[in-house]
């Protein structure tokens, strides 16, 4: 099958995956960890149990996916915001490096943080 010479399908896949996963899961985290638990709306586990949970391999994988893909979602969207919103498409190569560079750096930092929990 003939495919594109450029990498847009690759970035778009990360964008699409990031959009889906962040739309589904980030609101849950905001409500639970940002509002409900700090306000003590219900009894919950203590900090050590959370730590234990976060160290589970599946939890690490989940955190990695949510954080990294959300960053790539942002990167792609911000790239096109700069292209179309600020009409900076002539700076395409710098914008691409800047946006996806931040997401890639963020992904590395995420890996380090997840394994140092």
């Amino acid at each position: 099958m003939s495919v594109s010479k450029n990498n847009d399908p690759f970035w778009w896949t990360l964008f699409g995956a990031g959009g889906t996963i962040s739309a589904f899961f980030i609101p849950i985290h905001v409500v639970l960890m940002g509002i409900a638990i700090p306000l003590g709306w219900f009894d919950t586990m203590d900090y050590d149990r959370y730590l234990e949970l976060a160290r589970h391999p599946l939890a690490r994988l989940y955190l990695f996916a949510v954080i990294s893909l959300s960053l790539f979602h942002w990167a792609h969207r911000f790239r096109y915001t700069l292209y179309d919103g600020l009409q900076l498409k002539h700076l395409e190569q710098y914008i691409v490096v800047f946006c996806y560079g931040i997401a890639t750096a963020g992904t590395f930092i995420t890996v380090i943080l997840i394994f140092s929990i």
Partner: peptide, 8 residues
């Protein structure tokens, strides 16, 4: 297109 890109 994305599926075909990944397949390739």
């Amino acid at each position: 297109g994305a599926v075909e890109w990944w397949k390739s």
